[in-house]
């Protein structure tokens, strides 16, 4: 039963982080919250018993965050100095 509650909490966190990514105005904040989404997805994959997918998601979450930030640097907007 406790696992069910934990899964529900993780799913709510996933949906909440997705909505924040879609609605936030600052692109840098969107990237950071997307990284948090990736982390919650890792925890969710671990809970439903697929460590292989969780491992892939963890590594790709890091790499895609680096990609997004370097692309944002090229865009020259979204970062408040």
């Amino acid at each position: 039963m406790a696992e069910l509650y934990l899964e529900a909490i993780l799913l709510i966190l996933l949906i909440a982080t997705t909505l924040i990514v879609l609605t936030v105005k600052d692109l840098m904040a969107a990237i950071v919250v997307y990284s948090a989404f990736s982390y919650f997805a890792v925890l969710f994959y671990l809970m439903v018993g697929s460590p292989d997918v969780a491992f892939t998601e963890a590594v790709i979450g890091v790499v895609s965050t680096v990609f997004f930030i370097s692309a944002l640097k090229k865009l020259n907007r979204g970062v408040k100095h």
Partner: peptide, 17 residues
Amino acid sequence: SPGGGFQAGALLAAGVL
């Protein structure tokens, strides 16, 4: 164990990055 070619490649690339 969990892992394989894709994950290993992504980890090595993360180290270089």
